[in-house]
Design a protein around this nucleic acid. Sequence first.
DNA 1: AGTTTCACCGATAGTACTATCGGCGAATGG
DNA 2: CCATTCGCCGATAGTACTATCGGTGAAACT
Lengths: 208, 208
Amino acid sequence: MAPALTRRAAKERTRKRLITAARDLILSGHETRLAASAVAKRARVAGATFYEHFRSRDDLLKALADDLFDELREKLAKSRREALAAPSNEEKLRQEFQTPLDVLAANPDLFRLSLRVRHYPASPLGDSSRRLSGNTRGDVVEELVARGYPHDSPEERRRLEMIADVHIAATEVLALGYLSGRYPDLNEVADMLVLVTHGTRLARGWRG
Amino acid sequence: MAPALTRRAAKERTRKRLITAARDLILSGHETRLAASAVAKRARVAGATFYEHFRSRDDLLKALADDLFDELREKLAKSRREALAAPSNEEKLRQEFQTPLDVLAANPDLFRLSLRVRHYPASPLGDSSRRLSGNTRGDVVEELVARGYPHDSPEERRRLEMIADVHIAATEVLALGYLSGRYPDLNEVADMLVLVTHGTRLARGWRG
DNA sequence: AGTTTCACCGATAGTACTATCGGCGAATGG
DNA sequence: CCATTCGCCGATAGTACTATCGGTGAAACT
């Protein structure tokens, strides 16, 4: 008789169960350490089974971190592509803030996790979150270049990074304020972010 | 014969040794958990002695967190008072960014710690760091009010908080970029932050 | 059918840490 | 000078977790 599940499929299924369990635990925000035993328990497998799928706790964390932050980066990138579809330039600028804001607001657990682990030293989660930050900065710099900001000299490129950092930090802090209930209106938040660009774009005139 | 050290003084000295040891460990950035046993070891006292001075690990963390972040807040507040001494209004604005930047740059370990623990859930360090953030926001809002920003309606006060959040987040992210070597010139950073205010101050004209 | 493979499991050795207990000896106080 | 207090300590019970080992039964292979 044919088996209900091939070994390969069953193992894949268990692995997914473990990753999903880990994901749920870490996104809940209560777990700081994410113990292998807790993951196994939640996935309803024995502790030893965990080590059939991952060499160590850190091995799972690495897989999980890539999983989570690649997902967030993909969502943010998609939202930016959508923003480019806006008709006018002014509207495009606004959408370039509005759509990432929507993504962060729609994924509060993931967003909060990325903030929480960003400064973890020597942790797969920290590494992955910092990689996401670096990538995002690069993406925003590209937007600035597309909007006509000068990027020929190293000084100019450094300034673009500064501007991108400011825009991202402002977006994140206001998104967090929205999630915590302090700023109830995302449109107002987007308006504020557009104003920030009215300041930072004055740096286009700098010499040096 | 008179003792070399009274009991009271000796105990106080041991307590300070423990706090200093904890401080060194947590500021080094390598310790995530700050084990009571590690603190005792570094202070060169027995593990049991730790509990003569603190009821639990969290009790020490609480004392330590207040200690550390009160210190940082005091330094930031002092720097802002100095900034107010600048002659012209334009210079004053710049100094209100320059002096906090100097403080963060001069205390990289403390600054990095405050970022690292800011989003820790249910931890004395996290609580204290968030309290520092809230206080700083309030301080910056006061500066904005002093600079003539409207603050009569709840909407206006909410906008002041948004602006303060943006200014603080921008300051922090660029200070971090300075510390990581990405932005080598603190003056350039301060110039960028002044530009940010040229954007955010446009919100003074908002109605609602 | 008989043999091999392997996904899973229970049990457990090993590690790290928290917090407590009983006792020692020096400071304290009559 | 004697009794008491208390700051410190070594030892250790208790807890939580990591990772491994040998065994079991069903799938895979021949």
